[in-house]
């Protein structure tokens, strides 16, 4: 029985390969992607690659049924990352082999998975008689160098065509590797006021993060910067939350931080109970004061 890692157009699956290697059987990467992706995924820990081809103009999602077919021929535990195309491939596999889906895994062993539930306030361990489909953070890109065999498999992708891509104006952010993150929430009153938060982030040598509504809805900050159950899940040394109430869905993205500092007008906001340092007050006076103290 093989253990599978699904690769959806990018090689950022190092964490998944590491987790798969701990289970029984060879680790098989099922790849939809260009040849450079195949070369990168041919890395130590990956025993075999089944390559379904370069999607070209098609969306990776077009290959969902092909990926499912590969796994269904010899069902085993399947891993995929949290990105949209990765989820689409994993869903098709779970459907084809009738496997339960596990998200937010904490510990994975043969026939048994512990996962975080209810946004991370509790965990649950289940034993499974058959394969499971696991969604987890993909991790850094693999960079080749393995003695991996590559098998090309025929694919009959569905009609799902990418007709246009309007690139983001801002560069992609990587909150995951930042030691310090200054994150802003709806406590901010206007987009122009972001300047004071950005000044603090600069003085603090921190990346800028935010709560979901600030990125989606208000559109003040790029979407890849929001923290939470559906956004970035980070564990920096310091997480400084400014004008963020600390709803469960937000906290499940930053609870791993070594230190949490909150600035909030409401001393009873949920984030206060989860903070190491609590500054109760108006961000419009406290943030500039903090920037000055750091400068």
């Amino acid at each position: 029985m093989s253990t599978y890692v699904l690769v959806a157009g990018n090689a950022g699956v190092s964490e998944l390969v590491a987790a798969a290697a701990k289970l029984d059987g060879p680790v098989v990467a099922v790849v939809v992607g260009a040849d450079e992706v195949v070369r990168a995924v041919a890395a130590p820990g990956v025993d075999k690659i089944v390559w379904l081809g370069d999607p070209g103009d098609r969306a990776v999602e077009a290959f969902a049924a092909d990926v499912a077919k590969v796994v269904a021929a010899d069902p085993g535990v399947v891993f995929a990352g949290r990105k949209p195309a990765e989820r689409a491939l994993l869903g098709a596999v779970a459907a084809a082999i009738s496997a339960p889906v596990v998200t937010m895994p904490v510990e994975i062993a043969a026939g048994q998975v512990t996962r975080a539930i209810a946004g991370g306030i509790a965990s649950e361990t289940r034993s499974y008689a058959g394969p499971v489909a696991i969604v987890s953070d993909g991790g850094a890109p693999l960079t080749g160098g393995g003695s991996t065999s590559v098998e090309q498999a025929a694919a009959s992708p569905a009609e799902v065509t990418v007709t246009d891509l309007r690139p983001n104006e801002v560069a992609a952010a990587d909150l995951g590797t930042a030691d310090r993150v200054v994150s802003v929430g709806r406590g901010l009153k206007a987009k122009e006021d972001l300047a004071i938060i950005e000044a603090l982030a600069t003085a603090f040598k921190a990346e800028l993060g935010c709560s979901r509504p600030v990125a989606e809805g208000l559109d003040w900050v790029a979407r890849d910067r929001y923290v939470g159950i559906s956004g970035q899940q980070i564990s920096p040394q310091v997480y400084l939350a400014v004008g963020i109430s600390g709803q469960l869905q937000h906290m499940s993205g930053c609870r791993g931080a070594q230190l949490i500092v909150s600035i909030n007008t409401d001393k009873d906001a949920p984030i206060v109970a989860e903070s190491d340092y609590i500054l109760t007050g108006d961000l419009y006076t406290l943030v500039p004061a903090l920037t000055a103290a750091l400068g």
Partner: peptide, 28 residues
């Protein structure tokens, strides 16, 4: 699958230090 264990996840214990903000500069 079959649930074999449950646990409360506490996350790291937090210090809960309240910093007096009546003087913003001193608080900072």
């Amino acid at each position: 699958g079959t649930v074999t264990a449950r646990a409360k996840l506490d996350g790291p214990a937090r210090k809960g230090v309240v910093i007096d903000t009546s003087d913003p500069a001193a608080a900072a």
